[in-house]
Design a protein around this nucleic acid. Structure first.
Lengths: 246, 246
DNA sequence: CACCTGACTTTTGTCTACAGCAGGCAGATC
DNA sequence: GATCTGCCTGCTGTAGACAAAAGTCAGGTG
């Protein structure tokens, strides 16, 4: 009626949000999961403002966001540190992430909305492109988005958000031993595994997808992880042992 | 070695954190779930600074926190509004919350750590006290904490956190029709139901707890909810119909 | 009479500045 | 020589102020 006929899509923002807060949050996420900031390392606000070229208020807001995402921990009057992960934390992250994936598959397979399926396909394509370009940082992000899109098959935005947070923390865990990321030689094999996963999803059989997911995970980063972290809970140790036997 | 012998507990902060951000966030949470701020209502920062007696930076940080919790929605350059809930949102919130509870029970029952069991008992006691004092706002908060403590039986802090966020959004949903909160006559009956739940937990049978939870929910707030919200997805409508038949 | 256009007001986004607390270090005392 | 106390630096927490963008309303024009 009042013009603007192409506003049918419910896109919240057509043009990227120029908010310094989100920019800073995104940059900090990359720095943390990329290993530029180590677990337990203290983050001094004034230090980062100079590094990012912004002022303290937006940086502080970004840090609040990252705190809610579980990437940093804020102690009042003391400062903020990159979340120090214990073995129990890693156990929590991995198991919950798997449970969320299972739940999403249970709710979202067989796929009803073609748009969701298309989103997975698009993410997989982006992954493939990054693999062919041998751009490992980009590949990691694309892989991240693909997994999120798979969880998005459930149509539950809140589940997707919770999963996104856990996935970020998983990447933080993986950053603990940098070695595991180097030995991740076969990007193409990884792409093949994900392509296969999407194929199984297309069959519409939830159980088949769950079975595939059970063996899908990349558990190489767990090698020798108990030497680099503290917090050896008994349940965590039992879980770790079970992960290695299967 | 260097004195301070009683520092065995890993308490992060002995004295409460006097951070204005957390204070403001807590106050805003109460205002939102209490119905002082309605869904979709716009929040003007300067308005609230005068109301809370604080400055804008801490308020903005608090709003970022609440945004991550799903209580408010921030649109760049436009402002922040209380999250407008659709029927599909309510469907998401209720189903995911139930799934998280089921997951927590599966992971946490039978109870291994006595401290977790004690926490539930303590929360239940606080609920009972609030019921006897007929303090409904306090009862709502205590009930909230009890449910969180039950999920905490799983020992998964991240699951507990995700559940806490969903529970908050559920309270936001309940605030949609204020009538449901008034008709909530029998506080004592509610206490009895929760006491019964804890007793079943003590039996150590997860399936029994799941069965109890299936009929435990307070679904009265769903009455006529489809008239007060938009976003009638087909899955949401189907779920709503199913909720009423069972 | 309806619509467009312009300036105005309100509100958000950001920056700079100041107050208060925590940790470290030097000096004095036992 | 060891320990305790007082200062001192640095950082966080908060406040106020400025600039830019969006919404609003009045006025003019077709």
């Amino acid at each position: 009626m009042t013009g603007s006929a192409d506003n049918t899509t419910s896109a919240p923002h057509i043009v990227g949000p120029p908010s310094l807060v989100e920019l800073a949050a995104a940059t900090l996420r990359r720095m943390i999961v990329g290993g530029d900031l180590l677990c337990g390392q203290r983050i001094v606000e004034n230090r980062l403002t100079g590094q990012l070229g912004i002022s303290r208020p937006p940086l502080r807001e970004a840090l609040r966001v990252l705190e809610r995402e579980g990437l940093v921990r804020q102690v009042p009057r003391k400062g903020v540190i990159v979340t120090p992960l214990t073995l129990h934390d890693i156990y929590e992250i991995c198991t919950l992430r798997a449970e969320f994936e299972r739940l999403a598959i249970r709710l979202g397979v067989p796929v009803t909305d073609p748009a969701r399926r298309a989103r997975c396909q698009q993410a997989l394509q982006a992954m493939t492109d990054a693999a062919h370009a041998d751009d490992r940082p980009a590949y990691l992000e694309r892989s991240f988005e693909f997994h999120v899109s798979v969880v998005g098959l459930s149509g539950h935005a809140r589940l997707e958000e919770a999963y996104r947070s856990l996935q970020l923390q998983l990447m933080l865990s993986m950053a603990l031993n940098r070695r595991a990321r180097e030995e991740h030689e076969t990007l193409d094999g990884d792409v093949a595994r994900h392509t296969h996963l999407l194929e199984i999803i297309d069959t519409g059989d939830p159980q088949a997808v769950l079975d595939e997911l059970a063996t899908h995970g990349d558990r190489s980063f767990l090698d020798g992880i108990e030497d680099t972290v503290d917090g050896h809970t008994d349940v965590a140790l039992a879980w770790l042992a079970q992960q290695r036997t299967s």
